[in-house]
C-alpha cells in the first residue's frame, strides 16, 4: 500500500515537479561521471580490435544508442498506455517527452552505424537488417511526434499520439523480423561483425558503462523536459505562482 501511495503522490504534478527537481542534479552528476569513465575506458584502455583496428571504438556509442532507441520506445508506449488506461496526465507527459529523446538516440545510432559501416563495408549506407529496422524505428518516432504536433488541443494530441505509439510498439517486433527475413533473403546472412560473440572484458566494460550512462542521461533529460511541460500545463494553478514568487521575489 505504501508503494501505491508513493506513486499516487508522485503522480500529482506539483509533487512530480518538486521531486524531479531534486533528483536531476544527482542523476546528472552520476551520468557525467559514468560518461567520462566509459569514454576513458573505451578510447584509451580498450585494446584495438585484431580485425577492425581502432574503428570499432564507434561501437561504444553505436550499440548503447541503438539499445536506448528501442528502450525509449518501450517506455513511451508503456507510459502512453498507462496514460490512456488510468487517465494519468503525467504518464502522457512522460510519453510525449520521451519521443524526441528516443528519436535523437535512433538518429545517433543510424549516423554512428553508417560511420562504422563505411570503413568496414566500404559504403555509407548498407541495407543491413539492423540498420534498416533502426531506420524504420526512426520513422515510427517521427510519426508519433508529427501526430502529437498536428493537434492544437494538447490533451487530444497526447492521447492520439499515445495510441499510435501503442500500435507502433506492436509492430516493432513484426517489422524487425520481417526486415531480418528480407535481409537474409537478398544478401545472405552478412557476417555480423558488430556483436562479436565473445567480447573481450576490456571492451565489454566500457560498453556496459556507456549503456548505463546513456540510460541515466535519458532519465535526466526526460525529467527536465517533463518538468517544464508539467509547469506549462499547470500554469493556472497556484503552486506555479508560488514557484515563480520563490524564484524571483
Amino acid at each position: 500500500m505504501r508503494l501505491f501511495r508513493f506513486f499516487h503522490r508522485f503522480a500529482s504534478p506539483r509533487e512530480f515537479f518538486r521531486i524531479a527537481g531534486s533528483m536531476i542534479p544527482w542523476l546528472a552528476a552520476t551520468t557525467l561521471l559514468l560518461l567520462l569513465i566509459g569514454l576513458y575506458l573505451g578510447l584509451f584502455v580498450a585494446p584495438p580490435d585484431y580485425q577492425q583496428g581502432e574503428s570499432y571504438r564507434i561501437m561504444f556509442i553505436h550499440v548503447p544508442s541503438a539499445w536506448m532507441s528501442l528502450f525509449v520506445y518501450m517506455v513511451m508506449a508503456g507510459t502512453a498506455a498507462i496514460g490512456l488506461i488510468w487517465r494519468i496526465k503525467l504518464a502522457h507527459v512522460i510519453a510525449m517527452s520521451s519521443a524526441p529523446i528516443g528519436a535523437s538516440f535512433t538518429f545517433l545510432a543510424l549516423v554512428t552505424g553508417s560511420l562504422w559501416g563505411k570503413p568496414m563495408w566500404g559504403a555509407w549506407w548498407v541495407w543491413d537488417a539492423r540498420l534498416t529496422s533502426e531506420l524504420i524505428l526512426l520513422f515510427l518516432y517521427l510519426g508519433v511526434m508529427a501526430l502529437y504536433a498536428a493537434f492544437e488541443e494538447r490533451r487530444t494530441a497526447q492521447r492520439a499520439a499515445g495510441i499510435l505509439a501503442i500500435v507502433g510498439v506492436i509492430n516493432v517486433p513484426i517489422i524487425h523480423y520481417s526486415v531480418m527475413w528480407w535481409n537474409t533473403l537478398h544478401q545472405g546472412p552478412t557476417v555480423t561483425k558488430f556483436d562479436a560473440p565473445s567480447i573481450h572484458p576490456s571492451m565489454l566494460a566500457p560498453l556496459l558503462i556507456m549503456s548505463v550512462a546513456f540510460m541515466l542521461f535519458y532519465a535526466v533529460v526526460l525529467l527536465m523536459r517533463a518538468r517544464w511541460e508539467v509547469l506549462d500545463q499547470e500554469q493556472r494553478s497556484n503552486w506555479v505562482d508560488d514557484y515563480l514568487e520563490q524564484l524571483s521575489p
Binding site: 524504420i136 508529427a146 513484426i174 517489422i175 526486415v179 527475413w181
Partner: peptide
C-alpha cells in the same frame, strides 16, 4: 501527408512478404 507518415512504416512487413 501525415497519414502517409503514420502508416507507411506499418505497411512495410506486408510489402516485404507480398512483393517477395
Amino acid at each position: 501527408i501525415l497519414l502517409a507518415l503514420l502508416i507507411l512504416p506499418l505497411y512495410i512487413p506486408i510489402l516485404i512478404f507480398g512483393a517477395s
